[in-house]
Amino acid sequence: MAGKKPRLAVWKFASCDGCQLSLLDCEDELLAVSGAIDIAYFPEATRGEISGRYDVSLVEGSVTTAHDAKRIKDVRARSRVLITIGACATAGGIQALRNFADVKDYICAVYAHPDYIDTLATSTPISDHVKVDFELRGCPINKKQLVELVSAFIARRRPVVPPHSVCIECKLKGNVCVMVAQGTPCLGPVTHAGCGALCPSYNRGCYGCFGPMETPNTKALSGELARHGMDAKALKRVYGTFNVNAEAFREEMKRHGS
């Protein structure tokens, strides 16, 4: 790709802006990154128009409106590689709690004029709508993984983003197990790595913000959590957060009550 820099675009759907902020939080890498690639569309950071095609699109946020369901198809058509960043784009985000409730009730609880509000009954991940080339986990994503991912796609190599559990990260870090040693309930055994075992490093149980790992044994973990004092209501809550619509967490949540 000598001569022409790859074009990058950053798109936002329903989200908190935190994952795209991770790009601006790469204080040490940002200028190097912007030297290697052309940040062609990134409305949070720059004035500029949508135009032509992009080599890499980073997509933040979930699809919650009919307009956005159409817009993501246009984004896909303009993108050689489409990467979702974060739990909203990858699993639907915490706003996917509406998928298990009555959205009319939600609207009425928040807005005085429900008729002004235009929204879908569900919050869905990008992969429910278009083909996704890579999904980066986390609420929020880990910025080091983001830099790795963008570098890998520019170099057309496979990104190094391990799919194992948070437990492995604790062991690599030398943490004492908070569940075994302190009796603190922890989702680490079923949660996708990437945060660096942050919560256990701060004497707290993992709360699953990176979503389920590959083939998690949630049922076995729930038994263990129940032995640590969590009742059905607590179990339902613990799986029903930022990755509630990721299949393994969704199904386990449903097992503990609707």
Partner: peptide
Amino acid sequence: PPRFYEAFLRGRSYMEASDITARICGI
């Protein structure tokens, strides 16, 4: 697009409010 935080906070534990409401804004 609205995300309805005040609606789905109902029924959550008082211990969860800080982690959940943090997600309103990444900045």
